[in-house]
């Protein structure tokens, strides 16, 4: 455990918190039910996002992360380490940087746990307030992604469980394929309004349903 002073940036009791989409959440539905929609949009707000940095070549670092989070540290671009039942995932962002996403309210405990087991050269940063997750599901999601990003989202190049950071709608986003017809976009707070509207607009032709 390091002697850094850390604190819970989002204490549960009484503090008001708003999703980046709080002001723009319009419930658009061009179709009557999610079953008829080509794209169902859902925001997973308030999840815990942590940026973890360290040396991938350090055995102790890798073992510590696995011990603290229960999923192995991915060592190359692409495959997401994910435990869907517990809602924990680790994504490779760059050779010495990872994005850890944990369920809402778990971020402080997770950060503490990482600080307990890790030692030496590493950093953990809580970035939960800076980004949010949009889940897109439905048969037409791939068409919407093809309109929005230059990255190849064909199943041949983008199998289930892959996660990449790329250009999205002239901005940037992290694109994660979590199931056959279910994708996640991790988007920045400052672009959230724009990207959310972009996704709605791009999905309109396929029938879009915003699930709350």
């Amino acid at each position: 455990m390091s002697d850094l002073s850390i604190f819970d940036v989002n204490p549960a009791a009484g503090a008001k918190s708003e999703s980046p989409l709080a002001m723009t959440r319009v419930t658009v539905a061009t179709v009557a039910s999610p079953a008829k929609a080509g794209v169902v949009v859902r925001e997973h707000a308030f999840q815990g996002h942590l940026i973890l940095r360290g040396r991938a070549t350090d055995d102790q670092f890798r073992a510590g992360v696995e011990q603290a989070l229960g999923v192995p540290l991915p060592l190359k671009m692409g495959p997401l380490s994910r435990d869907e039942a517990r809602g924990v995932s680790i994504q490779w962002m760059s050779p010495d940087e990872w994005l850890v996403i944990v369920p809402a309210g778990r971020e402080f405990a997770t950060e503490n746990r990482l600080r307990e087991v890790l030692s030496g050269h590493y950093a953990v940063m809580n970035v939960s307030g800076g980004q949010t997750v949009l889940e897109l599901s439905g048969p037409a999601v791939r068409d919407v992604l093809m309109k929005s990003t230059p990255y190849d989202v064909h199943p041949r190049n983008f199998p289930v469980g892959k996660a990449v950071s790329s250009v999205f709608a002239k901005s940037s986003a992290i694109i994660r394929r979590v199931a056959e017809d279910r994708w996640e976009l991790v988007i920045r707070r400052s672009f959230a309004d724009y990207l959310y509207r972009w996704v709605l607009d791009a999905s309109e032709e396929f029938g879009v349903y915003v699930a709350s």
Binding site: K76, M77, S94, P150, V164, S166, V167
Partner: peptide, 18 residues
């Protein structure tokens, strides 16, 4: 558009990303 191989991502990506 160029297709550029990123030695860290170990993949070809669009020029737009660079």
């Amino acid at each position: 558009m160029l297709h550029i191989y990123c030695p860290y991502c170990e993949e070809y990506r669009e020029e737009e990303e660079f």
